[in-house]
């Protein structure tokens, strides 16, 4: 028996456990989405999960048949990615679109990235969705490319978020039968991403998951805080209902769901603490800018762009280690 280096014990964490925790947390917004929206949400989620897992199993079987080590020996990672796709789809999306995003995610951005690069550089779900939806939106030969692509949906493009009067139309857009737009954004809305039906539920579950799975909380804090500050500042400058501004920019499904479940994806986000704060801050700036210009799913575009610069963020400022800090005497 060869001598072996330390340590010889382990805390018991594993990638699968990490994924299972994330999946468990996502079941809450998924359940709420189905409760609020009904079978449409359920089908979206099933299609996203079914497509990704189906493709995953085919690849898994092929790898086994060729006696290759499976890229994903367990289905947990593909399952989580698929669930993220499902929950990040807008209610208005046709089912084929959800299936396409899911397929693109698992084939190109999960297996593909892993195969061609040493690690994943962009969030698979965000990249798949951004690529497909932006792609569709600019296909002018389609009869209604903007409506099909969803990200630049005509409904959204009609909003004028740069003035108080224009912003007041958000009321009509987000209020439900029993709730005002403000309450609806936080508690219960049936428009936008499935995962963001209840902003408050995502906030609570996301916070618990952050503690449980020890997510990169600095990104979340910096993203949400910056969004809130930018929204408040815009509200003060343009006039109007400031709290509704904050609720709108922070609790739209894309931002609140993305903050906890996509922007913290470990592989594609910075490792250093300053890098994480700056990443969240930059993500908020970019997302807010895109939101002001009515690209309401713009957060995923912003995320994919920033993912690419993760390594740069890791080089900006390093924390000072023990022995390099000021010594009290």
């Amino acid at each position: 028996m060869k001598s072996e280096m330390p340590p010889h014990i382990h805390i018991g964490t594993s990638k699968d456990k990490f994924m299972l925790k994330t999946f468990t947390a996502m079941l809450v917004p998924a359940f709420i989405a189905v409760l609020a929206i009904g079978e449409v949400a359920f089908y979206h989620l099933m299609i996203a999960v079914g497509t990704a897992l189906g493709i995953h199993y085919l690849i898994f079987l092929m790898q086994r048949l060729k006696n290759k080590k499976p890229t994903y020996p367990t289905p947990y990672s593909p399952l989580v990615a698929a669930m993220i796709v499902g929950l990040s789809m807008p209610v208005l999306a046709p089912y084929w679109l959800t299936a396409s995003v899911s397929a693109l995610m698992i084939l190109v951005f999960k297996y593909g990235q892993g195969y061609f690069f040493t690690r994943k550089y962009v969030n698979p779900a965000a990249a798949a969705k951004a690529l497909l939806l932006v792609g569709l939106s600019i296909m002018i030969f389609l009869s209604e490319p903007l409506r099909t692509g969803l990200i630049f949906h005509p409904h959204h493009l009609r909003l004028d978020l740069l003035s108080a009067e224009g912003f007041s139309s958000v009321d009509r857009f987000y209020s439900t039968d029993s709730l005002t737009a403000f309450r609806s954004l936080i508690l219960w809305k049936t428009h936008g991403w499935l995962g963001g039906v209840s902003g408050l539920a995502v906030l609570v579950v996301g916070t618990l998951l952050t503690l449980w799975a020890k997510l990169k909380w600095r990104i979340i804090v910096s993203l949400l805080l910056t969004m809130a500050i930018l929204a408040a500042a815009t509200g003060f400058i343009t006039g109007g209902y400031v709290l509704l501004r904050i609720a709108f920019h922070v609790f739209t499904g894309s931002v609140i769901f993305l903050a906890f479940f996509m922007a913290t994806e470990p592989q594609t986000t910075p490792m250093t603490y300053t890098g994480q704060y700056l990443f969240g801050f930059s993500l908020a700036l970019l997302t807010f800018g895109l939101q002001l210009f009515n690209v309401l799913g713009g957060s995923i575009i912003a995320l994919v762009i920033l993912n690419i610069f993760t390594d740069k963020f890791d080089k900006i400022v390093l924390r000072k280690p023990y022995g390099h800090r000021e010594v009290k005497t």
Partner: peptide
Amino acid sequence: VMGSLMMGWSVG
């Protein structure tokens, strides 16, 4: 394992 389980080498 000689010494600590966290820091010691194992020998066979």
